[in-house]
């Protein structure tokens, strides 16, 4: 998907025969209408509902200690999950894209597993493993470690659910890049680490960023798996989405939408960061081009 995005950055090639103006117009209108009705309006509505009863109610809903605790918990889980997945994603993508080994296809299939397993099942899976009546539960209990109905379990569940995001984005990009650049770095005397840091990582930075953003969004928004392992202890194990659900169930819809708007806002911020980063990269390239042509004109002038 990332490769498509990258190639699509330039103007699309005009396919001969597809050029009837009316057809193109129709396609654009359909796409725009769809995006408007199914993506933009619902999102806008969340904000509208959140502010329905004015700023004070909105603010009051947010400073509610249980909500503040939910925000903190969500950020904590995300702060642990995203770096974990970043490391795993890079390692897995590197192994899959650059090396040949036995069971490679098995690893690729396993990475996709969290996509195909329902999050609720994931949650139950962890309960079965770490819960009091689970396989590891008695041992954990004896050592006073609580996983289920506590933060560690929620981190585990979120990590599992978001596992594919970074790796999935990186694998195609790394594969298409091949490993000649890395080999060139080695012949120039770079160590493995230098090669990774200066050559491999920068060449996949956009894909990496995209993977992190998707991972981040999902980690913040994950409901099913986290819901099962959290135990719904208000003020302790409620994340933002769980909090929204709880408020909604309590018929406190304004507060629910206020909290929901925070979630939506976080999503928009990450999207903005990504766009800004892409702009920045393009500007760097454009500047390089300009600098060169400037230098050339001044040179031709002086001679």
């Amino acid at each position: 998907m990332i490769t498509e995005r990258q190639t699509a950055r330039g103007s699309p090639p005009r396919v001969a025969g597809s050029g009837s103006g009316a057809g193109r117009f129709l396609l654009v209108v359909i796409a725009m209408l769809f995006a408007l009705v199914f993506l933009f309006l619902p999102l806008l509505n969340v904000f509208a509902k959140a502010f329905e009863k004015g700023w004070t109610v909105f603010y009051g809903a947010l400073v509610n200690p249980d909500t503040v605790s939910a925000i903190k918990l969500s950020l904590t889980i995300t702060a642990i999950t995203v770096p974990l997945n970043l490391i795993f994603g890079i390692a897995a993508a590197w192994a899959i894209a650059k090396f040949e080994f036995r069971w490679k296809s098995l690893l690729v299939a396993l990475i996709d597993l969290p996509f195909s397993v329902s999050p609720v099942v994931t949650g139950l899976m962890f309960v079965l493993l770490f819960g009091l009546r689970g396989y590891l539960g008695p041992w954990l209990d004896a050592h006073n470690i609580q996983v289920i109905y506590a933060v560690p379990g929620m981190v585990l569940a979120t990590t599992f659910v978001t596992l594919p995001f970074v790796a999935r984005e990186l694998i195609p990009v790394m594969q298409s890049a091949g490993n000649e650049q890395e080999q060139a770095a080695l012949t120039l005397g770079a160590s493995g680490w230098q090669t990774f840091w200066h050559v491999t990582l920068p060449s996949v930075k956009l894909a990496l960023l995209y993977g992190v953003i998707l991972c981040n969004a999902r980690a913040l928004g994950e409901f099913g798996a986290v819901s099962v392992v959290s135990g719904h202890i208000t003020g302790l194990t409620d994340t933002l989405p769980l909090r929204v659900e709880k408020l909604y169930q309590e018929y406190n819809s304004t507060a629910a939408f206020a909290v929901a708007s925070i979630l939506a806002l976080l999503a928009l911020v990450t999207l903005a960061i990504k766009t800004a980063f892409e702009w920045h990269t393009q500007r760097v390239y454009a500047r390089a081009e300009r600098a060169t042509s400037d230098a050339r004109t001044t040179r031709t002038k002086s001679t």
């Binding site: 890049a177 000649e180 650049q181 080999q183 060139a184 770095a185 012949t187 050559v199 920068p202 060449s203």
Partner: peptide, 11 residues
């Protein structure tokens, strides 16, 4: 080593 594809660092 000069590679056939040059393998310049793209970034």
């Amino acid at each position: 080593f000069v590679f056939q594809s040059y393998a310049l660092f793209k970034n």
